[in-house]
Design a protein around this nucleic acid. Sequence first.
RNA 1: GGAGAGGUGGCCGAGUGGUUGAAGGCGCACGCUUGGAAAGCGUGUUUACGUUAACGCGUAACGAGGGUUCGAAUCCCUCCUUCUCCGCCA
Length: 422
Amino acid sequence: MLDIKWVLENQDHAKKAFEQRGSAVSVDELIRVNDERKELQLQFDELRAEQKSKSKLIGQYKKEGKDAQPILDEVNQIADKVKELNHKQSEAENTLKSLLHQIPNIPHESVPVGSDESANVVARSWGQKREFAFKAKEHWELGEDLGLLDFERAAKLAGSRFAIYRGALAKLERALIQFMLRVQTEENGYEELMTPYLVNADTLTGTGQLPKFEEDLFKTTSGYYLIPTAEVPVTNFYRDEVVNEKELPYSFCAYTPCFRSEAGSYGKDIKGLIRQHQFNKVELVKITKQEESYAALEKLTNDAESILQKLNLPYRVMTLCTGDMGFGAAKTYDIEVWLPGQNQYREISSCSNCEAFQGRRMNTRYKDSNGKMQFVHTLNGSGLAVGRTLIAVLENYQQEDGSILVPEALQHSMGCEVIKKP
RNA sequence: GGAGAGGUGGCCGAGUGGUUGAAGGCGCACGCUUGGAAAGCGUGUUUACGUUAACGCGUAACGAGGGUUCGAAUCCCUCCUUCUCCGCCA
């Protein structure tokens, strides 16, 4: 959510940004609705003040034994108008708020301008792509050939976009989770959280999934939603709280399964594990002071990258352009891992600085050194998407006979050096 | 699921339907006092919106949302949540 005051004071900037981000709401509409709101508040405040002072008189008169009837009649009429104005005023406030809730965040000045992913910019690359003496296979082929990945039975149990991992592959997924959590907590300074996987609508509004993107979520009959990412419960940890400035920044990591309806992605990544209704992820979240969030974004991105480096998986980091960023982000780096089977880079992490966008929605604040209330800045990034990391391990560590070498960092927890057909 | 008791400021804790944004205490900040500290004394100590050059002023907020009333922290209804007891249960 944007600050209406900022919009009023920076109308040209706002107009340009709204266009770049494809906002359905215009600056002019915001100004109009806000003016209406102010006018109604003024009317209400004045009338309510009159009502209050005269009501007090009634109390006084009665105490003194004077006749209060004339005032009572007068105030009776005021009361009706006050009630009406009160409704109108809160309606106007809600209208403004719901407009503000639909507007995407303003891009940071360092973000490249562009309408789609073709305008994204490579920030850096890491690692050496392996040369294969044979034709590299895709992960689903490798998994099914090993007999360790079963999509058909998963479809029977649930439907399409689900998978069953068997034996060594189930263990590999678990080893990756454990490995990522270990690195993020022990080396990169994150505190681990275990959170609810079902959350309420307020929580999803805080991080920006609601009200605009309800169709992407699974909703239960009791009104709970399955979380689409741990960003949701973790970022909302301090919702409606004033946090101590001295404790900032907070760094949290959390492993959770994630659930996405994938409505509107028919025909996209139908095969394999890339796009599932349910997948595992270790998420990184930082909550910072305003002036520290961009340094924190670099750190958080590096922390996510460190997992790929330790697994020796080649990747590149992309700076997303204005048109390719998520709703709440002011700046985003995507980390893309190299998949030799697919012969392309695929997103494995998305690290964003949301600035005060979520802080304002969540109403999470701190008192700065001047005693002024400020909204926190929030950041999140995958550290990493576990299923896609498993894909990357399969494809990058495959051997000609279809077996998979286990990355050195995982050999201890896997208890083996190679995954072979059982 | 059943029965009962609660939810008030950073914390604890008063509150009779009428100058209660809210007693008192603790904490915190500043000042006085002191050789220095503690104690003591004094002053101050929520946020949002509106208004103002500024000091201020106005309005709202006592879990949330409705209602009764000229007037609600106080009365009524619904919901959320915490605690105790019973039942069920991994």
